[in-house]
């Protein structure tokens, strides 16, 4: 495992004529928890989705754990990866979505067991044991046989985290994991994420939870207009933002 988990160099991304990412350079160290904040439309979610190749980048280079994402380099030329190779890369990168995206036709336990069995071909018994432990870890040992529609938003999101962890990823991406939750349910999800950070997981978290960023984050990135405006220690950026745009944004949300 290399020291640098995520390395981005000059990332650009266009949606038609819209320049969503306008040159992102970034490094996330192994074991680091990086929080990304910024106004909506600033490109923070798009950047997160580029890291596991849900979005293709239009220029620049992106590495996860020392491997180019979505491409293979042979000499000077880049070769696009086949679907199976991209899928292989994604197995090591867990992702948690704003809207949970649990599989509604499966119970909580089946949701967590699905990928290890179907993707890695592990035996049902082994996976069941691990999935049960994970659901216990996120505080849902009594909800294993519940369907997503029978769970609260906070419970669904914790199942989603357990589902991602079942693939034993090296890196976890969180895309506004608490934005769709009722305020009183946010705490349970953040607790699970805090514990995950304490256990040494490398995490990139797009969030509006400034308290979480300050307390759990090792670094804080402020994005606006498709670029990184400011990056630093969470405490310092939140207390004394250097840039005008950061100051404006924080004055609105804090």
């Amino acid at each position: 495992m290399s020291e640098i988990m995520v390395k981005a160099e000059g990332i650009h991304k266009f949606y038609g004529r819209l320049h969503v990412l306008a040159g992102i350079d970034l490094e996330v160290e192994t074991g680091e928890v990086m929080c990304v904040i910024g106004p909506s439309g600033s490109g923070k979610s798009t950047f997160l989705r580029c890291i596991n190749h849900l979005e293709k980048i239009d220029s620049g280079r992106l590495w996860v754990d020392g491997h180019l994402v979505g491409y293979r380099q042979r000499g000077e030329k880049l070769h696009e990866m086949r679907e199976s190779e991209v899928a292989r890369q994604r197995q090591d990168i867990g992702m948690v979505f704003q809207r949970f995206n649990l599989f509604p036709h499966m119970t909580a336990l089946e949701n967590v067991m699905e990928a290890p069995i179907q993707v890695r071909g592990e035996s049902r018994a082994v996976v069941r044991e691990r999935a049960t432990a994970l659901l216990e870890q996120v505080g849902l040992s009594d909800k294993m046989s519940g369907y997503p529609s029978q769970l609260s938003g906070g419970q669904q999101q914790r199942v989603a985290i357990a589902r991602a962890l079942a693939m034993e990823p090296k890196l976890m991406l969180f895309d506004e994991p608490t934005s769709a939750l009722d305020p009183e349910l946010v705490g349970d999800v953040l607790d699970v994420m805090r514990q995950l950070a304490l256990d040494g997981m490398t995490m990139v978290v797009v969030t509006h939870e400034m308290g979480f960023a300050r307390e759990v984050g090792d670094s804080l990135v402020f994005m606006d207009g498709g670029v990184i405006v400011e990056k630093g220690l969470p405490r310092e950026v939140l207390a004394e933002p250097k840039h005008r745009r950061t100051q404006d944004f924080l004055s609105k949300v804090l």
């Binding site: 899928a87 979505f97 699905e114 179907q118 989603a160 693939m167």
Partner: peptide, 25 residues
């Protein structure tokens, strides 16, 4: 669409996503 994205993020491939996740729904 989020169902497909979640499956892709877990490393599933297109045919498997169709058979296990999309068609049953």
């Amino acid at each position: 669409e989020g169902q497909t994205e979640a499956s892709q993020a877990l490393g599933m491939r297109r045919l498997k996503i169709m058979r296990r996740i999309v068609l049953p729904q």
